[in-house]
Nucleic acid binder design. Structure first.
Length: 458
RNA sequence: GUGGUCGUAGCUCAGUUGGUUAGAGCGCCAGAUUGUGGCUCUGGAGGUCGCCGGUUCGAGCCCGGUCUUCCACCCCA
């Protein structure tokens, strides 16, 4: 048999011990802030029924869903001719009834509807799990990545938005990542579509506007023309991009321009109220009204939030928004929710590039017991056990190899202390403890003395 | 999904217009040093040159396909 080459699927990654300790630092930080704000953790399965997932993320999203082939004889009852005729996409729906989740929000909506009788609203939940997208990998873009979601569902209050923004600010503050929080409102975008007289083109308009920073106004207008917008309508957009000043000034200019659009005014009022709350909370992060911010899945209906890292070129590190009727499709009407999602993998990339992870803590062990052979090991095991009982991270070298090897093992793992018990120690009844950083070495006679030397803390 | 790009030792990378036996540094192993690491010195192991096919007397190098990496678009965390 030929050797098979070890490999993992495109766009997925292994995480080694060092990466995991950094990743856990991020996860624990986010989790801690979520819990501080009263959110409770849930988990949902990696796979959902395809009909739960399909149609929630737009046409593009559906294409990016990983589908799971049915078990058993999945060809049973499938007509090959029909298969050929209907094409790959339609056929996949005959062969697959499950798919990997694409985000955490839709499974959450499903969860809320399914468990509505057990849930006390308003419900604050958080969820930290991987999601999968059959996208083509790129920088900061993976096929398997973790999202850290916090949502509050069953309340329309803008206090919830303010709460989530405060969470964003705290998380990035703790992680020492400088960010800009951009805020917009889908109703303002709808107002813009109203204003230029093309309310039916809101999706095309928002998608194009979203690229303003990147490709410039001319290119945006060109794209809109391609999408079939009237030239006249497109020119009406111009004054919108000319608004300037701080957030409040921008909002009042917008109010004048969109005065005839009901949803536009509503969006402006919501946003003004939200900025009011944020002022009261005194959020230290930079926050900005960005009417060019449109990204977001089709289900957002109100506030839209996006967070960019200031010191790194990478997509957004956190995004979110309000969705008024996400649960409606599962049969639970009139339940509004708002949520955010941290992209842990991107945050990791940013922090790694900026060297924001604290050095050290590379190892778990504080002490390595040298292994001189069976007799000595038997003598050491009770000592080791006592250290464990004192919650001190310690390990015994498993094989009686020559000492220099055991020393370099400790070196490479940054283990600060070694305990040496050989023939001499056993004969005379003492224990040698060596500090590998200073090279200092001393003889002690009890576990307590060992602890004293190495210090309690791990 | 469209267009481009990368792949040589465990890691980072050299490798001339196609020419004999593919190199370096780091790491690893052994020894100098039999109960003491980091430093130094000496020696050693380790390669289907991503994979498959083609051109050629001859391919790491040229051509085609494929997989992977990274990048732009689309879209997104």
């Amino acid at each position: 048999m030929s050797n098979q080459k070890p490999a993992i699927p495109k766009g997925t990654r292994d995480f080694g011990p060092e990466e995991m300790s950094k990743r856990n630092y991020i996860f624990n930080t986010i989790k801690g802030v979520f819990q501080k704000h009263g959110y409770a953790q849930i988990e949902t399965p990696a796979m959902e029924n395809l009909d739960t997932l399909l149609g929630k993320y737009g046409e593009e999203g559906d294409k990016l869903l990983f589908k799971i082939l049915n078990s058993g004889d999945f060809l049973n009852g499938i007509d090959p001719l029909k298969m050929q005729a209907s094409g790959a996409n339609a056929t996949s729906l005959l062969l697959c009834e499950k798919g990997l989740r694409y985000d955490l929000t839709v499974p959450f909506a499903r969860y809320v509807v399914q468990h509505r009788d057990e849930i006390k609203f308003p419900f604050r939940r958080f969820q930290i799990q991987p999601v999968w997208r059959a996208d083509r990998p790129q920088k900061g873009r993976y096929r398997e990545f973790y999202q850290c979601d916090a949502d509050i569902i069953g309340s329309t209050s803008l206090l919830n938005e303010a709460d989530l923004i405060s969470i964003i600010d705290e998380v990035f503050g703790k992680l020492a990542v400088r960010v800009k929080i951009k805020i917009n409102n889908r109703k303002i975008l709808a107002g813009i579509a109203d204003y230029i007289g093309q309310p039916d083109k809101i999706i095309d308009i928002t998608v194009a506007i979203d690229k303003l920073d990147k490709i410039g106004m001319d290119a945006v207008m060109q794209e809109l023309q391609l999408k079939g917008l009237e030239v006249q309508s497109i020119y009406k957009l111009e004054p919108l991009f000319a608004i300037t000043g701080d957030n409040r000034a921008k909002l009042s200019q917008l109010r004048r321009i969109l005065q005839n659009s009901e949803s536009g005014i509503q969006g402006i009022e919501e946003t003004e109220k939200l900025f009011g709350y944020m002022d009261t909370l005194a959020i230290p992060s930079e926050t900005e009204l960005g009417i060019s911010l449109a990204r977001g899945l089709n289900y957002y209906t109100g506030t839209i939030i996006e967070v960019k890292a200031l010191d790194a070129e990478i997509g957004s590190v956190c995004g979110g928004g309000r969705y008024d009727d996400l649960t409606g499709i599962f049969g639970l009407k009139d339940v509004s929710g708002v949520g955010i999602s941290f992209g842990a993998d991107r945050i990791y990339d940013v922090m790694n590039n900026l060297n924001l992870f604290q050095a050290g803590s590379k190892t778990a062990s504080k002490v390595l017991f040298a292994n001189y052979g069976d007799k000595e090991v038997k003598y050491c095991l009770p000592l080791l056990s006592q250290l464990w009982q004192k919650d001190i991270n310690a390990e015994l070298y498993p094989d009686p190899v020559k000492l220099s090897k055991q020393f370099s093992y400790a070196d490479s793992k940054n283990i600060p202390f070694m305990v040496l018990v050989g023939e001499d120690e056993m004969k005379e009844g003492f224990i040698t403890v060596k500090n590998l950083f200073s090279g200092e070495q001393q003889k002690v006679s009890s576990v307590n003395e060992i602890i004293e030397i190495i210090g309690q803390k791990n």
